[in-house]
């Protein structure tokens, strides 16, 4: 299989890439790891007239933890995250999700930023980013724009980028005090997309009460979705089995899964509840460690 013909450019600077994207308008697409875009092009589900390959742009493969954020540049591959001590030190949910994204070969090539941009409701990263309150740094020829992840993930395969914008970086605020996070994913076989997955993140105040809570769900809605009522139930509370159970039940209510080959809707909702509770327990243990 091969895709329809397209024009190709492989700029060696971000400015050059942005200029090409601006000139080509809506007919151009960014090519990052290509692990979603190329299969879609081969199946002719996507047929961009122009591909702007960003893989040759130096300086976009950074992970750093300066100035209050853990920052992940556009060319950081999933596998770079698996191997990053900086990520492990600063964000439990990102660290625990990375090994469960796709398979090792795809992880060697696919990027976190590409995945975030792709907005596949079965993709893992946007749930993690919603739970961790990420920000997307979008760059265009007219400058930089910071987009809260809640505003970035619009719908099924739809983000809020304007034509001409590139995701330069995705960043998450560092924990204010003690914090922890987890990503629990149920898959049919290793390397598969999620049947159901839940991202959780907790932060504790000086008094040991929950100061911030993030919970987001994968593959059970038409986009990755925050379980906002469940988060609210936790904030200000002393961590306990009871409050985690209550949050888990509320998270299950935020899921609107479909019955399909991966399981029935009722069962998936049940998995959301169990994984939310386990994820909160793991997040708490990490925050207290």
């Amino acid at each position: 299989m091969f895709p329809p013909a397209f024009a190709y450019s492989a700029p060696e600077s971000l400015d050059e890439a942005l200029a090409t994207l601006t000139n080509e308008g809506e007919s151009a697409r960014v090519l990052a790891g290509g692990q979603s875009l190329i299969p879609m092009m081969k199946l002719r589900l996507a047929s961009p007239a122009h591909l702007v390959d960003i893989n040759n742009i130096p300086g976009l493969d950074y992970i750093d933890a300066a100035n209050g954020y853990l920052r992940i540049g556009a060319l950081v591959r999933h596998n770079d995250i698996v191997n990053s001590e900086l990520v492990t030190a600063h964000n439990g949910a990102i660290a625990s999700a990375a090994p469960w994204v796709a398979d090792p070969l795809v992880r060697n090539r696919g990027t976190l930023c590409g995945s975030v941009a792709h907005c596949d409701p079965e993709g893992d990263w946007n749930s993690v980013m919603l739970a961790a309150r990420a920000q997307v740094v979008a760059q265009s020829t007219s400058g930089e724009r910071v987009i809260a992840i809640d505003d970035f993930v619009v719908d099924f395969f739809t983000n809020s980028l304007e034509p001409g914008e590139i995701v330069k970086e995705v960043r998450v605020p560092k924990y204010a005090g003690r914090g922890g996070g987890a990503y629990l994913k149920l898959e049919r076989k290793i390397g598969d997309y999620a049947t159901v997955a839940v991202a959780t993140q907790l932060q504790l105040g000086e008094d040991g009460k929950i100061s911030e809570a993030g919970i987001a769900l994968t593959a059970v809605n038409n986009k990755n979705t925050r379980a906002i009522a469940a988060e609210r139930a936790l904030v200000g509370e002393e961590p306990s089995d009871e409050i985690f159970k209550e949050a888990a039940a509320l998270a299950a209510q935020a899921a609107e899964p479909e019955s399909n080959v991966r399981g029935t809707a009722e069962w998936k909702r049940n998995v959301v509840s169990v994984y939310t509770r386990r994820g909160l327990e793991a997040s708490l243990a990490q925050a207290r460690a």
Binding site: Y8, G34, Q35, I38, P39, L105, V106, N108, R109
Partner: peptide
Amino acid sequence: TPMKSCTMF
């Protein structure tokens, strides 16, 4: 680095 050559140009 091992990669899938059906998914690269």
